[in-house]
Design a protein around this nucleic acid. Sequence first.
RNA 1: GGAGGGUUAGUCUAAUGGUAAGGCACUGGUUUCGAAAACCAGAGGGAGAAAUCCCCUUGCAGGUUCGAGUCCUGCACCCUCCGCCA
Length: 428
Amino acid sequence: MLDLNFIRENPEVVRKACKDKNVEVNVDDVLGLDKKKREIMTEMETLKAEQNKISRGGTENKEIFAQAKEIKEKIKSMAPELEKADAELQILLLQLPNIPYEDVPVGTTEDENKVIKTVGKKPHFGFEPKNHWELAEKMGLIDKERAAKVAGSRFAYLKGPLVLLELSMFRFAFDVLSNEEILAKIAKKAKLNVSTKPFVPVLPPLMIKTEPYSAMDRLEPREERYKIEGEDLWLEGSAEHVLGTMHMNETIAENEFPIRYAGYATSFRKEAGTYGKDMEGILRMHQFNKLEMESLTVAENSYEEHLFLIAIQEYLMGQLELPYEVMLKCTADIGKPNARGVDINVWLPGQNKYRETHTADYMTDYQARRLQTKVRRKSGKVELVHTNDATALAERPLIAILENYQQKDGSIKVPKVLQKYCGFKIIK
RNA sequence: GGAGGGUUAGUCUAAUGGUAAGGCACUGGUUUCGAAAACCAGAGGGAGAAAUCCCCUUGCAGGUUCGAGUCCUGCACCCUCCGCCA
């Protein structure tokens, strides 16, 4: 949510953000309702002050009591009007998107995203490379038919060495994220003057209540979420949702920042509106495993933190020796709570294209305002924190390993950095 | 699932239905060569150009009352015990 004071003082900026993000909210309506609300409130507060004054006397004067009662009724009669104005205002406020960061390209479709960097060499095979489902099926690493029988489409059983490879990948990523020396190296290389504090590994709950989900601004679109029947609970769609909400309604001392979590979780998505898309393989599933980074920082450090999370993503991809591109998303494609969003797309030789594996979301104080996650500054001042989230590794990079490390005979080499975790160097 | 106890600001704790007191921690100031101690002040949200003996804030939402942390109703969460259970 945006700061109402900011909207009052910068209506033009908000109007532009709405236009660029293709969100239809009339900012004048917001300002009008805000004004109306304050007028009613001021009047009610004046009456309330009068009432308080009377009842503070502690006398037994029946006439004065009658007068107080009258004021009370008057206040009560005004309440619905205030509630109505406030409810209308809230609906509009919740629709207003975060303000895009200055370098976010303005665009109306994802085609206007900008590739800003291409890294790594695409592998040259002396044969026609297969896609990951051909490779995996042949070796019995993925069973979607039986998964369909048990759970339906877009589910899979991962089996055998693929499971060990996946766990190795996550273990590797955990080791990177909790290693201060490596983080320092990454920061230095990216020329970022950020804290080198390690990420705290977390296994979060996979379900989340409506209130925190909504405060995180991630409940919508609801048709994308799984609801638990008969409970006020949803299956989370990303570890971000349950990590970012950890400190809801908390005020934290400045010296505890940055707060960094590396959360491993299975994520659940309905993939509504993607019928027929990516039906083969495991690129787009209702359920997938992911290791996510979540950072809470003070305002002045949040942008560098965003860049740092991207630098970490690039480091992980580099260590896995996977070719990728970095894409600056345009206003149409970054989410409503985002100020900036960057994707990393990995090269998939079996499909002969780049596919998204990572996202980095820079949220400024937009999420924290509803979450009421605050920092108590050394000066004693209380402010909202800034949030950042970014993928560390997920099952899409695992697909990329299958496709990029395939051999002529259909076997798959294990990336060097994962070999010590795996205990084997090749899957065949 | 059943029974009981609880929720007051960063934290710990008080308040016969009379308008939220205090300790610790924290921040600023006075003092000091500097610190500690001591003393003073501050510390959530909002309204207002501002002063402000202004409004709101005792888990949340209502109700009774001139007045609710306190009484009543509903809900949430935490703790203890019982039952079931990986």
